[in-house]
Design a protein around this nucleic acid. Structure first.
Length: 923
RNA sequence: GCGCCUAUAGCUCAGUUGGUUAGAGCGCUACCUUGACAUGGUAGAGGUCCCCUGUUCGAGUCAGGGUAGGCGCACCA
């Protein structure tokens, strides 16, 4: 093996082997375990958020596969209507073309071409992460069978009256020229103005002043409203004003909605361009005058002067025209929330159009119940509140989009405007007995992307066909996803799956945090702080990184700043840390759905961990490859250390499994790291040297230690594998022939996960080794603080040793000598007087290193005083507690006993140390 | 307005049903190229657990009230 771990050399080949051998498929045996991949957009590239979530999904998948579950990770990609259409349109724009130049059919063809060419990108990147979904079942949301499911669902919901078509005010994106759902609108506070405008009374009896943030909409006003309780305006109600610029006469109405305290207390009402005004218009039967075109220009319903003007130009003109008429009272700066489309960033218009809706209320009820009853569980739990809050106030879902890329709505219209819903035109004609001469035209619109995503849990399993997968993998085990799509996706999957299969879609919902940069800032192209997981795996040099971060900037002037920051932070580029290190980092940082501040130094630390594992393996192989490891017979004599490491392995295994069951990947990772580094490497490997390099060891003893070395490591690889698939596979292949593992698994990834073995637990060995550790650490501490060179071998005297201590000494003396670098160990009997020594205390035994020629009197006094001070504090605190009547009277017996024992121990140690201090002072 | 989350070492974070001396990684200091590993070893320094009040024998942990920061939903003429 190479001296240092080089992930690049092993990862790709390893993955190809797994895939070639078909190891990602469900075994067909065992309890089903299923994870649904949230289908990434085909337009997407793997970002840190994916890498994080995929690591967790893959660790769970690999763990359960090894545990013997019939495990499926269902993967696929989403057609991402708007996003994908925008990508291809942008390509066309580069050639000065629009999608209209191509026409619908050609355009859609072109999107398919693009999908074939670039759509697989993210799947390839997932392979680099070592993910193990069943690629043979990979689906695309516009595949034939998924499209069939979409159609089926649409038709059924329509027939039940749960899908309807209606003319209403929707969120209209005047740039993308489509309706969008409430969820796709983001409102940010922006600086704007409040214009106060004077509307004269129609009868010339005065005027009324209204306040608005959108003066241009006055062209569509059909009323002015005041609060019925507002005394200032009561005499106006029922009268009319003459709307400036248009000459229309519109009524003054009274409505509770109006807040008398806000603005002037008078509201202009534009039912066709404001959601609240729309409701009021309905209540008062007001006419709805639409004054905008699809692309938000003033239309023919407005006076000729304004027709054709863009909405923002119209605003300026309305304001200046009112001003010149003396009707503009004042302009106040005003902060307001501006609704923008999440894709286009265009200001969204409330706009009156015909759209398709899902009536969700009846679907929401069972979906709420599924979480309330505990059938579906959010992890962490508090997300259920977010879920309920939205679900309890859920609005009908606008599902039609005026796009070309997506699932076409299966509805046809005749010339009379009748609607027919069915599988295709022929089906529609048949169902409705339409004569051949009736002309039918299919609805031009497509469905919201999330409509098909909502069917993911069952459509991917073959629904509406009755398939074995539907029986086996619905419901799935856990959904791993971000809180940002709880409404978009999670809630809708629950509603649809409940509705169409009667089942819940998943039992657990594990909500992950966001991956941010090391300062806690959101990673974004415009901030230039984006990290590509592939760059962390493969490494990237500085120039390439700078180029990547500054290319295609929306605001080119940001590029200079980004260049500077990047050069400073990554002056040597990014090292190739490898997939396992990256995955381990994500696991270690994944605590209870907090956001992750991704820090490169963590990856570096876990890369070092990989290297540690690698080198430990080198050591183990060096000591086992050419030797008898006892796997083909021969007596094994296990040392107390061999027994100890097996015992500790069981603890680690149990801790790992418990943590995984609770989705505490950080605790799981911590357990793996601690055992591997701090127990196996730091102590066990060092101790094995004492057996292997000693002439005193018998063949049985050496065989026992070699057997332990190879098999603990082999078990450890299987334990680590779910988190670190590559390095463990590489190493396991080398270890397996030397180990006792005689399974015929094709790879560690389909081998058995280690089983907890009670018989390997050994408390006696654990206590013995704790004693050894305290012994060794005590001496190391003296050595460290006294600046005694590591090369200097020390003679050690033991005073006040009990028979148990002497027993343990006999069992472990060789280890102590090696680990603490001792020259000799002698036990003093009670009559012997110890020479002046530096002292450490283990239990009641004193470990003494004679000072002569080695240790400085003052230094040792200082060291002893420090430790005496600590003990004195302990004694004081504990005494205080125990002398408190309330404590002794009320605390549980066990706690009091603990305190008493602690006090006794501290007093004993303190007195020994004080004795030593006196002895040394006397020198 | 309604709701959620966070505050612990220089940094990033753990800390279970309240109960030993509050932990880890990174960083820092000193020493060490010893035969697996300098991507390493050994030892060490470093804490007003955001603040106040309360409950309790006992509070990082529970309750109430603040402060600071983050997020979601609704409203916004």
């Amino acid at each position: 093996m190479e001296k240092t771990f080089d992930p690049n050399k092993i990862e790709q080949a390893c993955y190809q082997q797994w895939e070639k051998q078909g190891l990602f498929k469900p075994s067909g045996i065992g309890e089903p375990y299923c994870i649904l991949l949230p289908p990434p957009n085909v337009t997407g590239n793997l970002h840190m958020g994916h890498a994080f979530q995929h690591t967790i999904m893959d660790a769970l998948t690999r763990y359960h596969r090894m545990k013997g579950n019939n495990t499926l990770w269902q993967c696929g990609t989403d057609h991402a209507g708007i996003a994908t259409q925008m990508v291809v349109e942008r390509q066309l724009n580069a050639d000065d073309l629009t999608r209209h130049d191509l026409g619908r059919e050609k355009f859609v063809e072109r999107v398919w071409d693009w999908k074939k060419e670039s759509g697989g990108n993210i799947s390839q990147q997932m392979r680099r992460l070592g993910t193990s979904p069943d690629w043979s079942r990979e689906v695309f949301t516009m595949d034939e069978n998924l499209s069939k499911a979409v159609q089926e669902v649409f038709i059924q919901l329509y027939n039940e009256g749960l899908i309807y078509r209606g003319k209403r005010l929707v969120n209209w994106d005047p740039v993308l020229l489509t309706a969008v759902s409430d969820l796709e609108v983001e409102s940010e506070e922006e600086d704007g103005f409040m214009w106060h405008m004077r509307y004269p009374m129609a009868d010339g009896s005065g005027d009324i002043v209204v306040a608005t943030t959108r003066p241009e909409t006055m062209l569509g006003d059909t009323a002015v409203a005041v609060n019925p309780e507002d005394e200032r305006y009561q005499s106006y109600v029922g009268k009319f004003i003459k709307l400036p610029l248009t000459g229309r006469e519109i009524p003054i109405i009274a409505d509770d909605y109006v807040d008398a305290e806000f603005g002037t207390g008078c509201v202009k009402i534009t039912p066709a361009h404001d959601f609240n005004d729309y409701d009021m218009g309905k209540r008062h039967n007001l006419p709805m005058i639409n004054i905008l075109t699809d692309d938000a220009k003033i239309n023919d319903n407005a006076p000729a002067d304004y027709q054709g003007l863009d909405r923002f130009d119209a605003r300026k003109k309305v304001v200046s025209d009112l001003e010149s008429l003396g009707l503009l009272v004042e302009i106040k700066p005003h902060k307001l929330k501006v609704p923008r489309g999440d894709r286009s960033q265009a200001v969204i218009e409330p706009y009156l159009t015909d759209q398709w809706y899902v009536a969700v209320e009846s679907l929401a009820k069972p979906a709420i119940e599924a979480v309330k009853s505990g059938e579906i569980r959010f992890i962490p739990e508090n997300w259920d509140k977010t879920y309920y809050q939205w679900m309890n106030n859920i609005q009908d879902w606008c599902i039609s989009r005026q796009l070309w890329w997506g699932h076409r709505i299966p509805a046809w219209f005749d010339d009379a405007g009748n609607i027919y819903v069915g599988k295709d035109e022929q089906d529609v004609r048949q169902q409705n007995s339409l004569a051949d001469d009736v002309v039918l035209k299919q609805d031009e619109d497509v469905l919201d992307t999330w409509f098909s995503s909502a069917l993911w849990p069952f459509a991917t399993m073959g629904w509406p066909e009755e398939t074995p997968e539907l029986d086996t993998f619905v419901p799935s085990s856990v959904l791993v996803t971000g809180f940002d799509i709880i409404f978009f996706w999670v809630a809708r999957m629950i509603m649809m799956t409940k509705k169409f299969t009667g089942q819940i879609p998943f039992k657990d919902i594990y909500i992950t945090g966001l991956v941010r940069d090391e300062n806690g800032d959101k990673m974004s192209k415009s901030k230039g702080n984006v990290l590509d997981p592939i760059d962390v795996i493969d490494g990237i040099d500085l120039e390439a990184l700078v180029a990547k971060r500054t290319s295609g900037m929306m605001k080119p002037k940001d590029a200079a700043k980004i260049t500077k920051v990047t050069r400073k932070q990554f002056s040597d580029g990014i090292d190739a840390y490898g997939t396992d290190a990256l995955r381990f980092t994500f696991a270690a940082m994944a605590s209870t759905s907090r956001d992750i501040n991704f820090d490169m130094s963590r990856v570096e630390g876990y890369r070092n961990f990989c290297n540690k594992i690698w080198n430990a393996t080198r050591f183990v192989l060096m000591n086992t490859e050419e030797f008898d490891t006892g796997n083909k017979g021969g007596n094994l004599s296990l040392s107390v250390f061999d027994e100890w490491i097996w015992s500790r392995f069981q603890d680690t295994l149990a801790e790992f499994e418990k943590a995984i069951a609770q989705y505490r990947f950080d605790i799981a990772a911590q357990a793996l790291y601690e055992f591997t580094w701090n127990q196996f490497c730091d102590w066990y490997l060092e101790l094995s040297k004492a057996v292997l390099n000693s002439d005193k060891s018998s063949d049985d003893e050496k065989r026992g230690t070699r057997h332990t070395l190879i098999n603990v490591l082999e078990h450890l690889m299987r334990l680590l594998h779910p988190v670190m698939p590559f390095i463990t596979d590489e190493i396991a292949q080398k270890l397996k022939p030397l180990s006792a593992n005689d399974s015929n698994a094709a790879s560690i990834m389909v081998d058995a996960f280690p089983l907890y073995q009670v018989s390997r637990k050994n408390e006696q060995a654990e206590n013995d080794i704790e004693w050894v550790k305290s012994f060794v650490v005590g001496i190391r501490n003296i050595r460290g603080e006294m600046d005694i060179p590591p090369s200097k071998k020390l003679p050690v005297l033991l005073a006040n040793a009990s028979s148990k201590d002497i027993d343990r000494l006999a069992k472990t003396q060789d280890y102590l000598v090696l680990l603490a670098k001792l020259e000799s160990v002698s036990v003093l009997d009670n009559s012997e007087k110890a020479p002046a020594s530096a002292t450490a205390i283990v239990g009641e035994m004193e470990i003494m290193i004679p000072m002569a020629g080695l240790i400085d009197k003052d230094a040792e006094l200082k060291r002893l005083n420090k430790s005496a001070e600590k003990l004195e504090n302990d004694v004081k605190r504990t005494e205080g507690k125990l002398s408190n009547e309330n404590f002794v009277g009320k605390a549980p017996e066990a706690v009091i006993n603990k305190e008493r024992a602690k006090l006794e121990d501290a007093q004993m140690q303190l007195s020994k140390i004080q004795e030593q201090i006196e002895t040394i002072k006397a020198l």
